[in-house]
């Protein structure tokens, strides 16, 4: 069964339709990348999937259960999704360690000792163990990214969402992020990643979803979309990512 099955998802802002019937699936252990022109609704899509935004239509099946219904336990649903934001959104009044343990203690109700242990494990996994007592302001951009990922992973989510994980990074650090995502992929972590970054897409995924005009216009491998896709608009997008940013 698919982990996530999205059917005809619709989202409007003040009467303007941004998502106009988005349909796709994400299987357990799979990594999919969502690409598309700026403003086509990629971030909106991710936010609808964890109900940070309310969809105006369609269904979102999470392991077969429609989580777009009004009686869904939204907070329960959100806890199954690890969301890594573009600007990382680390809590700046908390240390690296506290950033990760906050959810474990207050949502998972772990003891401080158990939460610390779990957080330490995730920080080691992201090679951030030595920085655990630092505050976000004292981290490099790449380090913040790793902490944000560790914070998401610590909650044992069923799926990780990334919104533009490399847009704040220089090319070298982007490669590092690609390496981290690949590492997670080899550990069968399910991931959905929104990006403008064609090279990231080629590095990390089997499947790229191309979103435009509020709909899924194509779904294929990055290579396929880039070189041989029939639609010239899609070939052009992947050929000239910089111009469209």
């Amino acid at each position: 069964m698919a982990l996530l099955e999205i059917k005809d998802l619709v989202k409007r802002f003040d009467g303007r339709t941004v998502l106009n019937g988005v349909t796709f699936e994400l299987n357990e252990g799979q990594t999919k990348v969502i690409m598309g022109p700026s403003g086509c609704g990629k971030s909106t899509l991710l936010r609808c999937l964890n109900r940070l935004l309310e969809p105006d239509g369609g269904q979102i099946f999470f392991r077969g259960e429609d989580v777009a219904l009004p009686d869904t336990d939204i907070r329960q649903h959100r806890q199954r999704i690890g969301f890594v934001f573009q600007q990382f959104a680390l809590y700046r009044h908390l240390t690296v360690l506290e950033n990760i343990t906050l959810g474990l203690r207050k949502l998972r109700r772990l003891s401080t000792a158990a939460a610390d242990k779990k957080a330490a494990y995730q920080l080691e996994r992201m090679e951030m163990g030595a920085h655990r007592l630092k505050y976000p302001a004292h981290l490099s951009v790449g380090q913040k990214q790793r902490v944000a990922i560790a914070r998401a992973l610590a909650m044992d989510p069923a799926v990780l969402f990334f919104d533009e994980p490399t847009s704040a990074l220089d090319p070298l650090m982007s490669l590092e992020v690609a390496a981290v995502i690949n590492q997670l992929r080899s550990e069968n972590v399910t991931m959905l990643c929104v990006t403008h970054d064609v090279s990231l897409a080629r590095h990390v995924t089997d499947r790229v979803i191309f979103l435009d005009d509020g709909q899924v216009k194509a779904e294929d491998s990055a290579e396929q979309l880039l070189t041989t896709h029939a639609d010239p608009r899609i070939r052009q997008f992947f050929g000239q990512p910089a111009a469209l940013k």
Partner: peptide
């Protein structure tokens, strides 16, 4: 930073 508040909601708080 409104992003932090959104991140907290996304975590399920």
């Amino acid at each position: 930073d409104t992003g932090e508040l959104e991140a907290a909601r996304a975590q399920g708080f």
